[in-house]
Design a protein around this nucleic acid. Structure first.
Lengths: 235, 235
DNA sequence: CGGGAGATTGACTGATCTCAACCCGGGTGG
DNA sequence: CCACCCGGGTTGAGATCAGTCAATCTCCCG
Protein backbone atom coordinates (compact mmCIF):
# COMPACT_ATOMS: atom_id res chain seq x y z
CA UNK A 1 0.00 0.00 0.00
CA UNK A 2 1.55 3.20 -1.22
CA UNK A 3 0.48 6.75 -0.63
CA UNK A 4 -0.33 8.37 -3.91
CA UNK A 5 0.18 12.07 -4.37
CA UNK A 6 -2.57 12.47 -6.91
CA UNK A 7 -4.08 15.89 -7.11
CA UNK A 8 -7.01 16.28 -4.75
CA UNK A 9 -8.85 18.26 -7.39
CA UNK A 10 -8.64 15.35 -9.74
CA UNK A 11 -10.14 13.12 -7.06
CA UNK A 12 -12.88 15.61 -6.43
CA UNK A 13 -13.64 15.63 -10.12
CA UNK A 14 -13.77 11.85 -10.10
CA UNK A 15 -16.04 11.64 -7.09
CA UNK A 16 -18.45 14.19 -8.45
CA UNK A 17 -18.86 12.55 -11.84
CA UNK A 18 -18.35 8.83 -11.50
CA UNK A 19 -19.64 7.89 -8.06
CA UNK A 20 -22.59 8.00 -5.73
CA UNK A 21 -21.24 11.32 -4.51
CA UNK A 22 -22.35 13.02 -7.70
CA UNK A 23 -25.09 14.99 -6.03
CA UNK A 24 -22.94 16.54 -3.37
CA UNK A 25 -22.64 20.31 -3.52
CA UNK A 26 -19.31 21.97 -4.11
CA UNK A 27 -19.21 22.92 -0.45
CA UNK A 28 -19.90 19.39 0.69
CA UNK A 29 -17.22 18.00 -1.60
CA UNK A 30 -14.77 20.43 -0.05
CA UNK A 31 -15.45 18.90 3.34
CA UNK A 32 -13.98 15.58 2.24
CA UNK A 33 -10.36 15.36 3.36
CA UNK A 34 -8.58 14.42 0.17
CA UNK A 35 -5.29 16.11 0.94
CA UNK A 36 -3.64 12.80 1.55
CA UNK A 37 -4.63 11.78 -1.92
CA UNK A 38 -5.46 8.21 -2.63
CA UNK A 39 -3.69 4.96 -1.95
CA UNK A 40 -2.27 2.49 -4.40
CA UNK A 41 -2.70 -1.21 -3.74
CA UNK A 42 -1.11 -4.13 -5.59
CA UNK A 43 -2.66 -7.44 -6.61
CA UNK A 44 -3.07 -9.71 -3.62
CA UNK A 45 -3.15 -6.98 -1.00
CA UNK A 46 -6.14 -6.66 1.29
CA UNK A 47 -7.85 -3.37 1.99
CA UNK A 48 -9.78 -4.59 4.96
CA UNK A 49 -10.82 -7.91 6.37
CA UNK A 50 -14.00 -9.53 7.63
CA UNK A 51 -14.45 -8.71 11.29
CA UNK A 52 -12.54 -5.46 11.20
CA UNK A 53 -14.11 -2.19 12.16
CA UNK A 54 -14.69 0.07 9.19
CA UNK A 55 -15.42 3.70 9.59
CA UNK A 56 -15.85 4.96 6.11
CA UNK A 57 -16.32 4.41 2.43
CA UNK A 58 -13.56 3.03 0.25
CA UNK A 59 -14.07 4.39 -3.21
CA UNK A 60 -12.41 2.66 -6.13
CA UNK A 61 -10.70 5.14 -8.43
CA UNK A 62 -8.96 2.50 -10.49
CA UNK A 63 -8.50 -1.25 -10.51
CA UNK A 64 -10.59 -4.29 -9.61
CA UNK A 65 -11.19 -5.67 -6.14
CA UNK A 66 -12.91 -8.85 -5.07
CA UNK A 67 -15.29 -8.67 -2.14
CA UNK A 68 -15.71 -11.98 -0.41
CA UNK A 69 -16.69 -13.83 2.72
CA UNK A 70 -14.71 -16.66 4.24
CA UNK A 71 -16.78 -19.68 5.18
CA UNK A 72 -16.22 -21.63 8.37
CA UNK A 73 -14.00 -24.12 6.54
CA UNK A 74 -11.75 -21.39 5.17
CA UNK A 75 -13.23 -21.42 1.71
CA UNK A 76 -13.94 -18.02 0.18
CA UNK A 77 -17.16 -16.97 -1.44
CA UNK A 78 -16.85 -14.00 -3.75
CA UNK A 79 -19.89 -11.77 -3.31
CA UNK A 80 -19.12 -9.18 -5.96
CA UNK A 81 -16.37 -7.20 -7.61
CA UNK A 82 -15.71 -3.50 -7.18
CA UNK A 83 -14.45 -1.42 -10.07
CA UNK A 84 -13.86 2.27 -10.67
CA UNK A 85 -16.67 4.35 -9.23
CA UNK A 86 -17.83 1.61 -6.85
CA UNK A 87 -17.93 1.92 -3.10
CA UNK A 88 -16.70 -0.72 -0.67
CA UNK A 89 -17.53 -0.94 2.98
CA UNK A 90 -20.66 1.13 2.89
CA UNK A 91 -22.79 -1.55 4.49
CA UNK A 92 -20.69 -1.75 7.63
CA UNK A 93 -20.20 2.00 7.75
CA UNK A 94 -23.93 2.60 7.72
CA UNK A 95 -24.96 -0.13 10.13
CA UNK A 96 -21.99 0.36 12.42
CA UNK A 97 -21.32 -3.37 12.41
CA UNK A 98 -17.99 -5.01 11.83
CA UNK A 99 -17.11 -5.71 8.22
CA UNK A 100 -18.91 -8.81 6.99
CA UNK A 101 -16.61 -9.17 4.00
CA UNK A 102 -12.95 -8.97 3.09
CA UNK A 103 -11.57 -7.06 0.10
CA UNK A 104 -8.59 -8.20 -1.91
CA UNK A 105 -7.01 -6.55 -4.92
CA UNK A 106 -7.43 -8.42 -8.18
CA UNK A 107 -5.89 -5.75 -10.36
CA UNK A 108 -3.64 -2.95 -9.12
CA UNK A 109 -5.92 -0.33 -7.68
CA UNK A 110 -6.22 3.23 -6.50
CA UNK A 111 -8.54 3.73 -3.57
CA UNK A 112 -9.67 6.84 -1.77
CA UNK A 113 -11.23 6.91 1.65
CA UNK A 114 -14.17 8.97 2.85
CA UNK A 115 -14.83 9.11 6.60
CA UNK A 116 -18.12 7.56 7.69
CA UNK A 117 -19.20 10.42 9.91
CA UNK A 118 -19.02 12.72 6.98
CA UNK A 119 -21.05 10.37 4.83
CA UNK A 120 -23.69 10.09 7.50
CA UNK A 121 -23.89 13.83 7.85
CA UNK A 122 -24.36 14.10 4.09
CA UNK A 123 -27.16 11.54 4.24
CA UNK A 124 -28.93 13.66 6.80
CA UNK A 125 -28.39 16.99 5.13
CA UNK A 126 -28.57 16.13 1.45
CA UNK A 127 -31.70 14.32 0.33
CA UNK A 128 -30.46 13.67 -3.19
CA UNK A 129 -27.37 12.00 -1.87
CA UNK A 130 -29.42 9.94 0.58
CA UNK A 131 -31.60 8.80 -2.26
CA UNK A 132 -28.63 7.86 -4.45
CA UNK A 133 -27.06 5.89 -1.67
CA UNK A 134 -30.33 4.17 -0.96
CA UNK A 135 -30.64 3.26 -4.60
CA UNK A 136 -27.16 1.86 -4.55
CA UNK A 137 -27.95 -0.34 -1.59
CA UNK A 138 -31.22 -1.47 -3.13
CA UNK A 139 -29.59 -2.36 -6.41
CA UNK A 140 -27.08 -4.47 -4.63
CA UNK A 141 -29.85 -6.09 -2.66
CA UNK A 142 -31.63 -7.02 -5.85
CA UNK A 143 -28.50 -8.61 -7.23
CA UNK A 144 -27.94 -10.48 -3.99
CA UNK A 145 -31.45 -11.90 -4.20
CA UNK A 146 -30.83 -13.12 -7.73
CA UNK A 147 -27.58 -14.65 -6.62
CA UNK A 148 -29.28 -16.55 -3.81
CA UNK A 149 -31.84 -18.02 -6.16
CA UNK A 150 -29.23 -18.97 -8.71
CA UNK A 151 -26.95 -20.71 -6.29
CA UNK A 152 -29.85 -22.50 -4.66
CA UNK A 153 -31.44 -23.73 -7.84
CA UNK A 154 -29.00 -23.92 -10.72
CA UNK A 155 -26.39 -26.53 -11.51
CA UNK A 156 -22.70 -25.66 -11.44
CA UNK A 157 -22.65 -25.74 -15.22
CA UNK A 158 -25.47 -23.21 -15.47
CA UNK A 159 -23.90 -20.94 -12.90
CA UNK A 160 -20.48 -20.98 -14.53
CA UNK A 161 -22.04 -20.04 -17.86
CA UNK A 162 -23.88 -17.21 -16.15
CA UNK A 163 -20.76 -15.98 -14.38
CA UNK A 164 -18.86 -15.85 -17.65
CA UNK A 165 -21.61 -13.78 -19.23
CA UNK A 166 -21.75 -11.43 -16.27
CA UNK A 167 -18.00 -10.99 -16.39
CA UNK A 168 -18.21 -10.11 -20.04
CA UNK A 169 -20.91 -7.56 -19.36
CA UNK A 170 -19.17 -6.04 -16.35
CA UNK A 171 -15.59 -5.79 -17.49
CA UNK A 172 -13.84 -4.48 -20.55
CA UNK A 173 -12.41 -6.65 -23.27
CA UNK A 174 -8.86 -6.22 -24.51
CA UNK A 175 -8.10 -5.64 -28.16
CA UNK A 176 -8.42 -9.35 -28.87
CA UNK A 177 -11.78 -9.57 -27.13
CA UNK A 178 -10.45 -11.43 -24.14
CA UNK A 179 -11.93 -10.55 -20.78
CA UNK A 180 -9.66 -7.99 -19.17
CA UNK A 181 -10.22 -9.39 -15.71
CA UNK A 182 -7.75 -12.11 -14.83
CA UNK A 183 -8.95 -14.67 -12.31
CA UNK A 184 -7.46 -17.92 -11.10
CA UNK A 185 -9.55 -21.04 -11.51
CA UNK A 186 -9.94 -21.02 -7.77
CA UNK A 187 -11.36 -17.50 -7.83
CA UNK A 188 -13.79 -18.51 -10.54
CA UNK A 189 -14.82 -21.42 -8.35
CA UNK A 190 -15.32 -19.02 -5.47
CA UNK A 191 -17.77 -16.97 -7.50
CA UNK A 192 -19.69 -19.94 -8.80
CA UNK A 193 -19.64 -21.64 -5.43
CA UNK A 194 -18.02 -24.91 -6.41
CA UNK A 195 -14.70 -26.77 -6.39
CA UNK A 196 -11.72 -25.60 -8.44
CA UNK A 197 -11.59 -28.90 -10.30
CA UNK A 198 -15.22 -28.58 -11.35
CA UNK A 199 -14.52 -25.18 -12.89
CA UNK A 200 -11.54 -26.58 -14.75
CA UNK A 201 -13.52 -29.47 -16.17
CA UNK A 202 -16.43 -27.31 -17.22
CA UNK A 203 -14.22 -24.66 -18.77
CA UNK A 204 -12.50 -27.21 -20.94
CA UNK A 205 -15.89 -28.61 -21.84
CA UNK A 206 -17.04 -25.15 -22.93
CA UNK A 207 -13.81 -24.86 -24.86
CA UNK A 208 -14.44 -28.18 -26.60
CA UNK A 209 -17.87 -26.91 -27.58
CA UNK A 210 -16.33 -23.72 -29.02
CA UNK A 211 -18.22 -21.53 -26.56
CA UNK A 212 -15.07 -19.97 -25.16
CA UNK A 213 -11.40 -19.71 -25.90
CA UNK A 214 -8.75 -20.05 -23.21
CA UNK A 215 -5.23 -18.68 -23.00
CA UNK A 216 -4.05 -19.29 -19.50
CA UNK A 217 -6.19 -17.06 -17.34
CA UNK A 218 -7.50 -15.07 -20.26
CA UNK A 219 -10.96 -16.03 -21.42
CA UNK A 220 -12.73 -15.05 -24.61
CA UNK A 221 -16.46 -15.56 -25.04
CA UNK A 222 -17.05 -17.03 -28.48
CA UNK A 223 -20.74 -17.87 -28.35
CA UNK A 224 -22.60 -15.61 -25.95
CA UNK A 225 -26.02 -16.71 -27.14
CA UNK A 226 -25.40 -20.35 -26.41
CA UNK A 227 -23.83 -19.59 -23.04
CA UNK A 228 -26.88 -17.57 -22.10
CA UNK A 229 -29.05 -20.48 -23.11
CA UNK A 230 -26.98 -22.83 -20.99
CA UNK A 231 -27.22 -20.48 -18.04
CA UNK A 232 -31.03 -20.30 -18.14
CA UNK A 233 -30.93 -16.58 -17.53
CA UNK A 234 -34.06 -14.48 -17.85
CA UNK A 235 -32.43 -11.51 -19.50
CA UNK B 1 -58.28 -9.44 0.42
CA UNK B 2 -60.67 -7.51 2.64
CA UNK B 3 -60.77 -3.86 3.44
CA UNK B 4 -60.27 -3.36 7.12
CA UNK B 5 -61.87 -0.45 8.89
CA UNK B 6 -59.20 -0.18 11.54
CA UNK B 7 -58.74 3.22 13.05
CA UNK B 8 -56.21 5.28 11.20
CA UNK B 9 -54.92 6.64 14.49
CA UNK B 10 -54.12 3.14 15.59
CA UNK B 11 -52.17 2.63 12.37
CA UNK B 12 -50.34 5.89 12.88
CA UNK B 13 -49.41 4.78 16.34
CA UNK B 14 -48.16 1.48 14.95
CA UNK B 15 -46.10 3.08 12.20
CA UNK B 16 -44.49 5.54 14.54
CA UNK B 17 -43.42 2.98 17.13
CA UNK B 18 -42.81 -0.33 15.41
CA UNK B 19 -41.49 0.50 11.96
CA UNK B 20 -38.86 2.33 9.99
CA UNK B 21 -41.22 5.31 10.00
CA UNK B 22 -40.49 5.96 13.65
CA UNK B 23 -38.54 9.13 12.97
CA UNK B 24 -41.22 10.83 10.95
CA UNK B 25 -42.61 14.00 12.45
CA UNK B 26 -46.25 14.24 13.41
CA UNK B 27 -46.84 16.40 10.36
CA UNK B 28 -45.19 13.92 8.05
CA UNK B 29 -47.20 11.06 9.51
CA UNK B 30 -50.36 13.01 8.82
CA UNK B 31 -49.46 13.11 5.15
CA UNK B 32 -49.78 9.34 4.87
CA UNK B 33 -53.22 8.47 3.53
CA UNK B 34 -54.46 5.93 6.03
CA UNK B 35 -58.17 6.70 5.73
CA UNK B 36 -58.76 3.50 3.84
CA UNK B 37 -57.30 1.64 6.75
CA UNK B 38 -55.40 -1.51 6.15
CA UNK B 39 -56.17 -4.66 4.23
CA UNK B 40 -56.64 -8.16 5.53
CA UNK B 41 -55.13 -11.06 3.57
CA UNK B 42 -55.65 -14.79 4.12
CA UNK B 43 -53.15 -17.60 3.96
CA UNK B 44 -52.22 -18.38 0.39
CA UNK B 45 -53.13 -14.99 -1.05
CA UNK B 46 -50.51 -12.98 -2.89
CA UNK B 47 -49.92 -9.31 -2.22
CA UNK B 48 -47.86 -8.72 -5.32
CA UNK B 49 -45.96 -10.83 -7.79
CA UNK B 50 -42.54 -10.81 -9.35
CA UNK B 51 -42.54 -8.64 -12.41
CA UNK B 52 -45.35 -6.37 -11.26
CA UNK B 53 -44.90 -2.68 -10.86
CA UNK B 54 -44.84 -1.59 -7.24
CA UNK B 55 -45.29 1.98 -6.24
CA UNK B 56 -45.04 1.95 -2.53
CA UNK B 57 -44.21 0.26 0.73
CA UNK B 58 -46.29 -2.58 2.08
CA UNK B 59 -46.03 -2.49 5.81
CA UNK B 60 -46.93 -5.59 7.79
CA UNK B 61 -49.16 -4.77 10.74
CA UNK B 62 -49.93 -8.36 11.58
CA UNK B 63 -49.21 -11.82 10.22
CA UNK B 64 -46.37 -13.52 8.38
CA UNK B 65 -45.58 -13.30 4.69
CA UNK B 66 -43.03 -15.21 2.63
CA UNK B 67 -41.01 -13.25 0.14
CA UNK B 68 -39.70 -15.40 -2.67
CA UNK B 69 -38.39 -15.59 -6.19
CA UNK B 70 -39.52 -18.14 -8.73
CA UNK B 71 -36.68 -19.86 -10.59
CA UNK B 72 -36.78 -20.60 -14.29
CA UNK B 73 -38.05 -24.13 -13.63
CA UNK B 74 -40.92 -22.89 -11.49
CA UNK B 75 -39.31 -23.73 -8.19
CA UNK B 76 -39.59 -21.06 -5.50
CA UNK B 77 -36.74 -19.75 -3.43
CA UNK B 78 -37.81 -18.06 -0.22
CA UNK B 79 -35.62 -15.02 0.37
CA UNK B 80 -36.98 -13.94 3.72
CA UNK B 81 -40.11 -13.62 5.81
CA UNK B 82 -41.87 -10.41 6.71
CA UNK B 83 -43.53 -9.99 10.07
CA UNK B 84 -45.19 -7.14 11.95
CA UNK B 85 -43.22 -3.94 11.56
CA UNK B 86 -41.43 -5.13 8.42
CA UNK B 87 -41.64 -3.47 5.04
CA UNK B 88 -42.14 -5.27 1.75
CA UNK B 89 -41.49 -3.89 -1.67
CA UNK B 90 -39.13 -1.15 -0.63
CA UNK B 91 -36.37 -2.29 -2.97
CA UNK B 92 -38.49 -1.95 -6.09
CA UNK B 93 -40.11 1.24 -4.86
CA UNK B 94 -36.73 2.87 -4.40
CA UNK B 95 -35.07 1.66 -7.56
CA UNK B 96 -38.19 2.04 -9.69
CA UNK B 97 -37.69 -1.44 -11.08
CA UNK B 98 -40.34 -4.10 -11.34
CA UNK B 99 -40.75 -6.31 -8.28
CA UNK B 100 -38.04 -8.95 -8.18
CA UNK B 101 -39.94 -11.05 -5.67
CA UNK B 102 -43.44 -12.31 -4.97
CA UNK B 103 -45.15 -12.14 -1.60
CA UNK B 104 -47.53 -14.78 -0.33
CA UNK B 105 -49.35 -14.88 2.97
CA UNK B 106 -48.20 -17.61 5.36
CA UNK B 107 -50.36 -16.51 8.26
CA UNK B 108 -53.42 -14.26 7.99
CA UNK B 109 -52.11 -10.73 7.75
CA UNK B 110 -52.98 -7.08 7.98
CA UNK B 111 -51.08 -4.87 5.57
CA UNK B 112 -51.03 -1.14 5.12
CA UNK B 113 -49.77 0.66 2.06
CA UNK B 114 -47.67 3.79 1.87
CA UNK B 115 -47.28 5.48 -1.50
CA UNK B 116 -43.76 5.50 -2.90
CA UNK B 117 -43.71 9.15 -3.85
CA UNK B 118 -44.41 10.05 -0.29
CA UNK B 119 -41.65 7.80 0.97
CA UNK B 120 -39.19 9.33 -1.47
CA UNK B 121 -40.15 12.82 -0.41
CA UNK B 122 -39.56 11.83 3.21
CA UNK B 123 -36.14 10.47 2.30
CA UNK B 124 -35.24 13.80 0.79
CA UNK B 125 -36.64 15.96 3.53
CA UNK B 126 -36.01 13.93 6.66
CA UNK B 127 -32.43 12.86 7.21
CA UNK B 128 -33.21 10.65 10.17
CA UNK B 129 -35.73 8.72 8.15
CA UNK B 130 -33.30 8.41 5.25
CA UNK B 131 -30.72 7.03 7.61
CA UNK B 132 -33.14 4.53 9.13
CA UNK B 133 -34.20 3.31 5.72
CA UNK B 134 -30.61 3.03 4.62
CA UNK B 135 -29.83 1.00 7.70
CA UNK B 136 -32.74 -1.26 6.94
CA UNK B 137 -31.48 -1.87 3.43
CA UNK B 138 -27.94 -2.46 4.64
CA UNK B 139 -29.04 -4.93 7.27
CA UNK B 140 -30.91 -6.89 4.68
CA UNK B 141 -27.89 -6.77 2.44
CA UNK B 142 -25.72 -8.22 5.17
CA UNK B 143 -28.15 -11.06 5.68
CA UNK B 144 -28.30 -11.69 1.96
CA UNK B 145 -24.52 -11.96 1.83
CA UNK B 146 -24.55 -14.51 4.65
CA UNK B 147 -27.25 -16.42 2.86
CA UNK B 148 -25.20 -16.57 -0.34
CA UNK B 149 -22.18 -17.94 1.46
CA UNK B 150 -24.23 -20.49 3.34
CA UNK B 151 -26.01 -21.85 0.32
CA UNK B 152 -22.81 -21.96 -1.69
CA UNK B 153 -20.73 -23.72 0.92
CA UNK B 154 -22.83 -25.65 3.38
CA UNK B 155 -24.48 -29.02 3.02
CA UNK B 156 -28.25 -29.35 3.04
CA UNK B 157 -28.04 -30.81 6.52
CA UNK B 158 -26.14 -27.81 7.84
CA UNK B 159 -28.46 -25.37 6.16
CA UNK B 160 -31.59 -27.04 7.47
CA UNK B 161 -30.23 -26.94 11.00
CA UNK B 162 -29.44 -23.27 10.56
CA UNK B 163 -32.87 -22.50 9.16
CA UNK B 164 -34.55 -24.15 12.13
CA UNK B 165 -32.47 -22.05 14.52
CA UNK B 166 -33.21 -18.86 12.63
CA UNK B 167 -36.91 -19.66 12.66
CA UNK B 168 -36.77 -20.16 16.40
CA UNK B 169 -35.02 -16.84 16.85
CA UNK B 170 -37.31 -14.95 14.51
CA UNK B 171 -40.73 -16.23 15.44
CA UNK B 172 -42.62 -16.72 18.64
CA UNK B 173 -43.18 -20.04 20.31
CA UNK B 174 -46.59 -21.20 21.39
CA UNK B 175 -47.31 -22.25 24.95
CA UNK B 176 -45.83 -25.67 24.27
CA UNK B 177 -42.65 -24.22 22.79
CA UNK B 178 -43.54 -25.16 19.26
CA UNK B 179 -42.57 -22.71 16.54
CA UNK B 180 -45.61 -20.57 15.82
CA UNK B 181 -44.85 -20.37 12.14
CA UNK B 182 -46.43 -23.18 10.19
CA UNK B 183 -44.65 -24.18 6.99
CA UNK B 184 -45.16 -27.06 4.61
CA UNK B 185 -42.17 -29.32 3.97
CA UNK B 186 -42.02 -27.83 0.52
CA UNK B 187 -41.75 -24.32 1.96
CA UNK B 188 -38.97 -25.44 4.25
CA UNK B 189 -37.22 -26.90 1.22
CA UNK B 190 -37.65 -23.58 -0.55
CA UNK B 191 -35.83 -21.79 2.23
CA UNK B 192 -33.02 -24.29 2.47
CA UNK B 193 -32.74 -24.58 -1.27
CA UNK B 194 -33.24 -28.31 -1.63
CA UNK B 195 -35.80 -30.95 -2.55
CA UNK B 196 -38.86 -31.57 -0.40
CA UNK B 197 -37.87 -35.19 0.12
CA UNK B 198 -34.48 -34.17 1.46
CA UNK B 199 -36.08 -31.95 4.06
CA UNK B 200 -38.40 -34.77 5.10
CA UNK B 201 -35.54 -37.22 5.49
CA UNK B 202 -33.37 -34.82 7.43
CA UNK B 203 -36.20 -33.73 9.68
CA UNK B 204 -36.93 -37.28 10.66
CA UNK B 205 -33.22 -37.82 11.21
CA UNK B 206 -33.14 -34.81 13.55
CA UNK B 207 -36.19 -36.23 15.25
CA UNK B 208 -34.47 -39.60 15.71
CA UNK B 209 -31.56 -37.79 17.29
CA UNK B 210 -33.91 -35.96 19.68
CA UNK B 211 -32.92 -32.57 18.32
CA UNK B 212 -36.46 -31.65 17.40
CA UNK B 213 -40.01 -32.81 17.94
CA UNK B 214 -42.56 -32.94 15.15
CA UNK B 215 -46.34 -32.73 15.23
CA UNK B 216 -47.45 -32.35 11.66
CA UNK B 217 -46.23 -28.94 10.61
CA UNK B 218 -45.45 -27.88 14.13
CA UNK B 219 -41.80 -28.07 15.08
CA UNK B 220 -40.24 -27.84 18.52
CA UNK B 221 -36.50 -27.29 18.95
CA UNK B 222 -35.30 -29.66 21.67
CA UNK B 223 -31.53 -29.22 21.47
CA UNK B 224 -30.60 -25.81 20.18
CA UNK B 225 -26.95 -26.17 21.08
CA UNK B 226 -26.47 -29.29 19.03
CA UNK B 227 -28.37 -27.87 16.10
CA UNK B 228 -26.13 -24.83 16.14
CA UNK B 229 -23.13 -27.10 16.16
CA UNK B 230 -24.51 -29.05 13.20
CA UNK B 231 -25.16 -25.81 11.34
CA UNK B 232 -21.59 -24.55 11.72
CA UNK B 233 -22.86 -21.07 12.51
CA UNK B 234 -20.52 -18.40 13.73
CA UNK B 235 -22.84 -16.91 16.31
C1' DC C 1 18.25 -26.10 -12.07
C1' DG C 2 15.08 -26.54 -8.10
C1' DG C 3 10.93 -24.88 -5.97
C1' DG C 4 6.34 -23.44 -5.69
C1' DA C 5 1.88 -22.00 -7.26
C1' DG C 6 -1.59 -22.91 -10.08
C1' DA C 7 -3.71 -25.96 -13.59
C1' DT C 8 -5.10 -30.46 -15.14
C1' DT C 9 -6.56 -35.15 -15.12
C1' DG C 10 -8.30 -39.50 -13.34
C1' DA C 11 -10.54 -42.39 -10.05
C1' DC C 12 -13.53 -42.74 -6.51
C1' DT C 13 -17.16 -41.49 -3.34
C1' DG C 14 -21.17 -39.91 -1.65
C1' DA C 15 -24.60 -36.43 -0.83
C1' DT C 16 -28.60 -35.17 -2.94
C1' DC C 17 -32.02 -35.32 -6.57
C1' DT C 18 -35.51 -37.69 -9.17
C1' DC C 19 -39.05 -40.80 -9.86
C1' DA C 20 -42.50 -43.64 -8.35
C1' DA C 21 -45.30 -45.78 -5.09
C1' DC C 22 -47.93 -45.33 -1.12
C1' DC C 23 -50.07 -43.27 2.97
C1' DC C 24 -53.12 -40.22 5.45
C1' DG C 25 -56.76 -37.00 6.62
C1' DG C 26 -60.26 -33.94 5.13
C1' DG C 27 -63.68 -32.60 2.10
C1' DT C 28 -67.18 -33.63 -1.27
C1' DG C 29 -70.56 -35.36 -4.19
C1' DG C 30 -73.42 -39.26 -5.33
C1' DC D 1 -72.77 -43.19 4.47
C1' DC D 2 -69.17 -44.19 1.64
C1' DA D 3 -66.17 -44.03 -2.31
C1' DC D 4 -63.26 -40.92 -4.29
C1' DC D 5 -60.14 -37.31 -4.77
C1' DC D 6 -56.62 -34.20 -3.64
C1' DG D 7 -52.89 -32.04 -1.35
C1' DG D 8 -49.47 -32.92 1.50
C1' DG D 9 -46.26 -36.19 3.67
C1' DT D 10 -43.22 -40.47 3.59
C1' DT D 11 -40.38 -43.99 1.98
C1' DG D 12 -37.43 -46.64 -1.16
C1' DA D 13 -34.49 -47.41 -5.17
C1' DG D 14 -31.56 -45.80 -8.57
C1' DA D 15 -29.19 -42.29 -11.06
C1' DT D 16 -25.91 -38.54 -11.10
C1' DC D 17 -23.81 -34.34 -10.25
C1' DA D 18 -20.18 -32.66 -8.15
C1' DG D 19 -16.77 -32.87 -4.37
C1' DT D 20 -12.43 -35.03 -2.63
C1' DC D 21 -7.98 -37.00 -3.03
C1' DA D 22 -3.89 -37.82 -5.27
C1' DA D 23 -0.72 -37.73 -9.02
C1' DT D 24 1.19 -35.07 -12.62
C1' DC D 25 2.13 -31.15 -15.41
C1' DT D 26 3.34 -26.46 -16.65
C1' DC D 27 5.02 -22.28 -16.01
C1' DC D 28 7.57 -18.76 -13.93
C1' DC D 29 11.05 -17.14 -10.91
C1' DG D 30 14.98 -16.79 -8.21
Amino acid sequence: MIRNSSDSNELKEFLSTKTVFKHLSKEELDLIPLENGSEIFRRGEMIYEEGHRINGFYCVVKGIIKIFKTGFDGKDQIIRFAKPGDIMGFRSTITGELACTSTKIIEDSVICYIPGDLVKSFVKSNGEFAMDLLELACNELGEANDYITDIAQKTVRERLAEVLIHLKWSFNLDNENFLQISLTREELANIVGTATESVIRLLSEFKQDRLIELHGRKIKILDETKLIKISNMHY
